[in-house]
């Protein structure tokens, strides 16, 4: 096992796996609504087309980043990971504290189904619209997965490992979804978002720092300390925000 397995490879693959579960669950809800409302042909066609485009983005963009000097790449990717990861962490903290409502897959499924059912026109046109709805949902949710795969994977040359993490999540969610045939409302989406936000923020600070020439003590091991700091501050913020929000709404 390589020495950086627990400090770099494992967190990178875990982050892409968990982030992908969050996004694939959301995309699956829309695809399921399309499939149950307008049939599985447009749902599958839209999904496959979007997955093809997403795979193409990873295949083209991933290796292309290797031509950028490593310090510039680490700084660029680090800043993007900070913006993205801290955005997720902020939202997860606010949802956990009750300040923002939780994302509801059942509600999303009902809304999408109602919208598809309200459309009128020739059967072929309706099939096209349904296929485009599935395509758009998978493409938009998948963009975040692609970003995480490329960002987490490119910093340390772990593109394939990160892609495998995302692919495993896709297979797991689609397998479970196909089996139960309902929106996956039991998935603890916000907890996953919180965890991924913590990991990506830690990666962001680490790589932005490396790009700026920071000499981290313990090299990759500092990632664990950074993740612990974001986790503890996040948990603390949930408690403080919940108390203050409840007080202000009484």
């Amino acid at each position: 096992m390589p020495p950086e397995f627990w400090t770099v490879i494992f967190p990178a693959v875990t982050a892409t796996f968990l982030a992908s579960i969050v996004e694939v669950v959301e995309a699956f809800t829309i695809v399921l609504a399309v499939g149950t409302t307008r049939g599985w042909r447009p749902a599958i066609a839209g999904t496959v087309a979007a997955l093809g485009i997403l795979a193409l983005i990873v295949i083209i963009l991933g290796p292309a980043l290797q031509f950028i000097p490593i310090n510039a790449l680490q700084l660029f990717v680090g800043v993007l990971l900070l913006l993205f990861g801290m955005g997720w962490l902020r939202k997860a903290v606010l949802r956990s504290a009750g300040v923002l409502p939780m994302h509801d897959e059942i509600e999303a499924f009902a809304e999408e189904s109602a919208e598809l059912q309200s459309q009128t026109g020739a059967p072929k046109a309706l099939q096209w619209i349904a296929g485009i709805a599935a395509f758009k949902a998978v493409l938009l949710e998948g963009l975040e997965v692609v970003f995480i795969v490329i960002a987490v994977g490119s910093g340390k040359g772990l593109l394939w490992e990160a892609s495998l993490g995302a692919l495993a999540a896709c297979v797991l969610v689609l397998g479970v979804g196909a089996f139960i045939h309902k929106p996956l409302a039991q998935v603890p989406e916000n907890t996953l978002k919180f965890g991924v936000g913590v990991m990506l923020s830690a990666f962001g600070v680490f790589w932005a720092g490396e790009g700026l020439g920071v000499d981290w003590p313990g090299a990759d091991l500092i990632l664990i300390v950074l993740a612990a700091a974001f986790l503890l501050v996040g948990i603390g913020l949930v408690r403080i925000a919940r108390t203050r929000f409840e007080r202000s709404t009484i």
Partner: peptide, 13 residues
């Protein structure tokens, strides 16, 4: 992060 969370909490409250 802390400032952003507390600001949103204040605004929503």
């Amino acid at each position: 992060l802390a400032e952003s969370v507390m600001r949103e909490t204040r605004v929503r409250g």
